[in-house]
C-alpha cells in the first residue's frame, strides 16, 4: 500500500468538520450524558458489569461504527465526482484503492475509541492493563465489519443516496445491535435479531473478560461471516464496476 497516499487521504478525512463532530465528539458526549442519566454510573448491571464500563464500551462501539462507515461511503462521492477515473490513470490498482479506504476506515475509528476510554477512566472505570489492551484491541478490530459495510455502501449507493443509507445503516446496526438497548431487556424477537448483527457480538467480546457465559466461538463465527460476506460483496461489486 502507498503510505504517502494514505497519509494524504487521512489528513483530508480528519480535517473534515463533520467527521470530527459526528465520529469523534458525539460518542464521547453521549457517553457522558448516559453516565449522568444512569445516576453517575455507580451501579452494576445484572450481569455484573459496572454501568460505566458497559456504557463506555457501547459508546466506543458507536464511534467505531460511525467513522469507518462514513469513510467507505465517501467512495460513492468520489465515484460520482469522476475522481475514480482520475485515479485509474495512476499506478493505483482497484484493490489498492479499496485497501487504502479500508485502512483509512480503521484509522479514523481509533480516536473515538481512545477518547471515550479516556473519559471512561475519568469517570472511574478501572481494570488492569492487560484488560485495557484487550478491550481497546477488541473495540478497534470490531471496526472491521463496519469498514467493509461502509465500502459496500460506497460501491452500491449513489453520491446522493449515500448519506441516507449510511444514516439508516448506522441506526439499524446501532439500535438492533444493542448499542442503545441492552439485549437483556429487549423482547425475545428483538433479541433474536440482535444476535444476527456483528455489533452485538463485538459488544459481547468486549465484555467477555468480565462477564461469564459469553459464547466467544459464536461471536467469532457471526463476525467472521459478516466480514467474509461483506468482503465478497465488495469484491464482486468492484469487479462489476470496472
Amino acid at each position: 500500500m502507498n503510505t504517502r497516499f494514505l497519509a494524504l487521504e487521512l489528513r483530508r478525512a480528519v480535517r473534515n468538520g463533520r467527521y470530527l463532530i459526528f465520529t469523534v465528539v458525539v460518542p464521547s458526549v453521549m457517553f457522558v450524558l448516559f453516565v449522568n442519566l444512569y445516576g453517575g454510573g455507580e451501579g452494576t448491571f445484572p450481569n455484573g458489569l459496572p454501568v460505566t464500563t458497559s456504557l463506555m464500551m457501547n459508546m466506543a462501539l458507536f464511534g467505531v461504527m460511525a467513522g469507518p462507515l462514513s469513510i467507505g461511503a465517501r467512495i460513492a462521492v468520489e465515484r460520482g465526482l469522476g475522481w475514480q477515473r482520475q485515479l485509474r490513470l495512476t499506478p493505483l490498482t482497484g484493490s489498492g484503492y479499496l485497501m487504502t479506504k479500508g485502512a483509512l476506515g480503521m484509522l479514523v475509528g481509533l480516536p473515538a475509541i481512545l477518547l471515550v476510554c479516556a473519559i471512561g477512566v475519568a469517570e472511574g472505570v478501572r481494570m488492569d492493563a492487560l484488560h485495557w489492551v484487550g478491550v481497546l484491541a477488541t473495540l478497534w478490530l470490531g471496526a472491521v465489519p463496519f469498514v467493509l459495510l461502509g465500502i459496500v455502501i460506497g460501491l452500491v449507493a449513489t453520491a446522493d443516496g449515500m448519506q441516507a443509507i449510511t444514516g439508516l445503516a448506522s441506526m439499524l446496526f446501532g439500535l438492533l445491535g444493542g448499542i442503545w438497548i441492552p439485549a437483556d431487556v429487549a423482547p425475545d424477537w428483538l433479541a433474536t435479531i440482535m444476535k444476527v448483527l456483528p455489533t452485538y457480538w463485538v459488544k459481547q467480546l468486549t465484555e467477555a473478560p468480565f462477564v461469564s457465559g459469553i459464547d466467544i466461538r459464536q461471536a467469532l463465527v457471526v463476525i467472521g461471516l459478516w466480514v467474509a460476506g461483506l468482503s465478497l460483496i465488495a469484491v464482486r461489486r468492484y469487479r462489476a464496476q470496472s
Partner: peptide, 25 residues
C-alpha cells in the same frame, strides 16, 4: 490524460489534489 469529465475532489485544495495524484506515481 486530461479527462473531459474528470472532476476534482470536493474537499481538497488544488495543491492537495495534485499532491494525491503525485503520491501515486
Amino acid at each position: 490524460a486530461m479527462l473531459q469529465s474528470g472532476a476534482l475532489l470536493d474537499d481538497a485544495t488544488v495543491a492537495e489534489a495534485v499532491g494525491l495524484i503525485a503520491a501515486l506515481h
